[in-house]
Each structure stands twice: as structure tokens, then as C-alpha cells.
Amino acid sequence: MAELRDLYQEVILEHSKAPRNYKEPAHTNHKAEGYNPLCGDRFTIYLEMDGDTVRDIGFQGAGCAISKASASMMTQSVKGKTKAEAHRIFAQFHELVTGHSHDHEAELGKLAVFSGVSEFPVRVKCATLAWHTLEAALEGKQEKVSTE
């Protein structure tokens, strides 16, 4: 049986209460808005890109504990990374939260705390909303991202 504590890990709760990089960076040059119509979660991801590298990143918005913590930890994990690296981390993260593969847990580092999400399929969209929005921001897409 799925365990609540696997989902609501301390680190996740802590990030949801005190999200990191909860700001619009001064030199933002890319941004995207993400929306999950199922629960009304809504985030904006701001990027300061230096060529292909994420020089700075921030987010703002409102959502459940999972989506907020995911956004917070995502900003930490992609800061300083290249576009290709960020895409790769998301691909591994996606495999993890959908339960397709736990092979990359070591590589994902702190993000591995989201492995419990795979036991709660309806919450996968919460964990990936910020990431989908990041992808849109990286691609410089202007339209709103929706999880539906």
C-alpha cells in the first residue's frame, strides 16, 4: 500500500513551506506560465539565460505542496546547467515520478525524494507542472502551458 510519508517527505514539506528562488530574477529574459486546470495550480517560471546556460531562475505562483516543492527544488537543480542538461534532468525526473524507471535516482540527487509520487498517479501532474513550464520557458514559447 502506498504510504503517505513516501509522498510527503520532510524535504518536500520543507520546500513547500519555504520555497527557494521564489522571485522574478532582475535579468529575466525568458518566462512561461504553467497551469493545471484540475486543481488550479498556477506557476510562472522566470529564466535568465546566458546563451545556452541557465544563469538564474525563479518562480512564483500557487499550488499544492507537491507542485510547489517540485518547482522549488527544480530551480535549485537546473541553475547553472545548460539547456540540454536541464532537459536530461527532466527526462530522468519524469521516469522517476511516473514509476517507469528508478535507475537515475543517484544521478537525480535530492530530486529522488519525489520517487514516492509514482505511487500516487493522480499527483504526477503536480510534480511535473513546473518542469513542463520550464521546458516551455527554455524553448522561448509564449503560450501558456497546461497539463491537460
Binding site: L7, D41, G63, C64, I66, V122, R123
Partner: peptide, 23 residues
Amino acid sequence: DDVHPHDIGTILDQEGIAVRTGH
């Protein structure tokens, strides 16, 4: 306060309680 309805829904569900969360 401070707890999103979606999180409440998941926790109640684990206790076998079906409520609706959302708009």
C-alpha cells in the same frame, strides 16, 4: 490555511474518505 485542497484530498483518500477537491 496553508494546506492546499489537493493535498488534503490525497491524505483523506489514504483513509478511505472520498471528497472532492478543486474548483
